[in-house]
Amino acid sequence: MMPPPVPPSAPANPASFTVIGMLWRWLLGFTFVARVRGLAMGTVSWGRALVTAVPFLWLILFFGLPFLVVLKISFSQAVIAQPPYTPLLTWAEDGIMVLRINFQNYLLLVQDSLYWMAYLNSVRIAAIATVACLLLGYPMAYAISKAKAELRVPLLMLIILPFWTSFLIRVYAWIGILKTNGLLNNVLIWLGLIDQPLPLLHTEFSVLVGIVYSYLPFMVLPLYATLSRMDESLLEAAADLGCRPGKAFLTITLPLSMPGVIAGSMLVFIPAVGEFVIPDLLGGPNTLMIGKVLWTEFFSNKDWPVASAVAVATLLLLVVPIVRFQKAQEESNKKAEELAR
């Protein structure tokens, strides 16, 4: 069953034209109209309008619009065809337009435990990995900020350097290390700590190691930024007022580095939630994460509508709340920055 070919200018489909027009205006937030009016009246300069319009239009076309397409397809049905989904709008034989909205895909997400388990699992694994990153990254950032001035830049470079090599290959390296007869098991057996190789690969542990390893630089860098910007005289003042170094760390350094802690945690948590490569290469059948579910739905099951529904749900359930939280954090960070000044 092939979809009817619809040329763009065909008057046969006026409804979809107005729908797109409405969505277009909604996307632009009426700003485009206002700009054009401003240009006509000479209140907005053409140069500025052009500078704004080029990236704006690019992002609307290739970032905003695609989401509307995803939204649309998430309401259609999978069929074996090219493309493999049914159109929402069809023409019945007597010239009446039919809009078929299909909620089946979203119902599936709720009913099938696979999907919401994958959501919960993604959040849980990303959260544990974020805490682990923090536990390793905070002392590292602290140590770098306390290192001799001429050592700090090389130490930071060494943190960033792995980022410039291929991400995929760095994840791949852990396969060789964590395999049953891999490097880590061999070392542990050689040390006499274990007799039998441990099953390390294809477990949640290996996924966590992979995430911590890949995202550690994103934790260390913002933490270093806040720690190195901190006024050394605050710690001197605390010592002068009778505060021992350990306590000064807890009462002064730690609270003042919270903006860095939150920024770093966000930089690790957000991409980790949607991660595909790490759970795919290092995880096993029990480490379901939502990115991998979407991938499988799309590439293996060829079910584009369900994959779209998973994407929409992920967007609404994960990305939007995270962004909201981050916005709120940024506001309070700004306040904290003012405080620190």
Binding site: V70, E275, F276, L294, W295, A311
Partner: peptide, 12 residues
């Protein structure tokens, strides 16, 4: 998430 960017662009 990359999977969402990829999917949405392809569908478009």
């Amino acid at each position: 998430p990359e999977v969402i960017i990829g999917l949405s662009l392809l569908l478009m």
